[in-house]
């Protein structure tokens, strides 16, 4: 008779975690794919795919989302890169607390902040009723700037300063030093900043809805609408399109080493 005995091993501690991941991450994602490729009756169909690629409103959502996603990523990088550079550079001797000050608005409720931006823009006459695109872009840049500053700032702090000194010692002009040394050295930060802005912008709901007064429909707005009308198949196909876009962008960035998620460094 063999005696079954349970021997504790530290790896068993991951079992509840693994079960949770299976139930609430893997299964739900599989369900999205299932709903994306079935009709209301549960039969396999490419109807949702056909509808997505022939419906001008849905194609418009895809186009506008990609456009606003790219624009916001560019704006945030253009504003945020010099900010992170100045904050990290020892030459300008800017207090460390300044970095914290740039992140602190994130502690105020996100919906409240978005509403505040909208009310301020309406007050100064730049409200979304008249300028939906401008108002939305301001709201997006305002919200995502900290997400660009953080990863760039941490990468720049870790940059090997001797390489930069070496470049100027060897006769590079300040411009050459910047474009040939600083930018390439900070590319991991640029990539992680861009990935942290692009997808969330494309799929956002509150910012575009509130700031454009409902005039700009992004992926988030479209999926939210499908959700509130109980159209699971349509919504799932849109979510599936987002998943494909993520996979494609991961293929593009997979060779670049990324910094840790900046949200992780708030504390």
């Amino acid at each position: 008779m063999s005696k079954l005995s349970f021997r504790f091993s530290r790896k068993y501690l991951a079992i509840p975690y693994a079960v949770f991941l299976l139930c609430f991450i893997i299964v739900p994602l599989l369900l999205i794919i299932y709903y994306a490729f079935t009709n209301g009756g549960g039969e396999f169909s490419l109807n949702n795919l056909n509808k997505f690629f022939t419906d001008p409103t849905k194609l418009n959502v895809l186009f506008v989302s990609l456009l606003i996603g790219f624009m916001n990523t560019a704006i945030c990088l253009i504003i945020g890169y010099p900010l992170a550079y100045f904050l990290a550079s020892k030459r300008y001797n800017i207090n460390k607390i300044m970095v914290l000050l740039f992140i602190m608005p994130m502690w105020i409720n996100f919906v409240l902040r978005t509403g505040a931006t909208r009310d301020l823009l309406v007050w100064i006459g730049l409200g979304g009723g008249h300028y939906p695109i401008l108002a939305t872009m301001i709201g997006m840049a305002y919200n995502y700037l900290p997400f660009v500053i953080l990863p760039l700032y941490t990468t720049m702090l870790k940059m090997d300063q001797s390489l930069i000194e070496a470049a100027s010692d060897l006769g590079a002009t300040p411009k050459q030093v910047f474009f040939k040394t600083v930018v390439p050295l900070s590319s991991p930060g640029i990539v992680s900043a861009a990935t942290m802005v692009f997808m969330p912008t494309m799929s956002s709901y509150v910012i575009s809805d509130v700031l454009s007064e409902g005039q700009i429909i992004l992926f988030g707005n479209s999926i939210y609408l499908n959700f509130s009308q109980g159209q699971w198949n349509d919504g799932s196909f849109m979510a599936f399109v987002l998943l494909v876009i993520i996979l494609v962008s991961m293929l593009f960035t997979k060779n670049v080493k990324k910094d840790e998620d900046a949200r992780g460094s708030i504390w």
Binding site: A18, L21, I25, L29, M199, F219, G220, I223, A239, M250
Partner: peptide, 23 residues
Amino acid sequence: LELVGQIPVVNPEIVIALSLTIL
């Protein structure tokens, strides 16, 4: 486990929300 565990970080919130709702 590390790969699956990090899915919610890259996955847009709206997809997480919809996938759970569907579940």
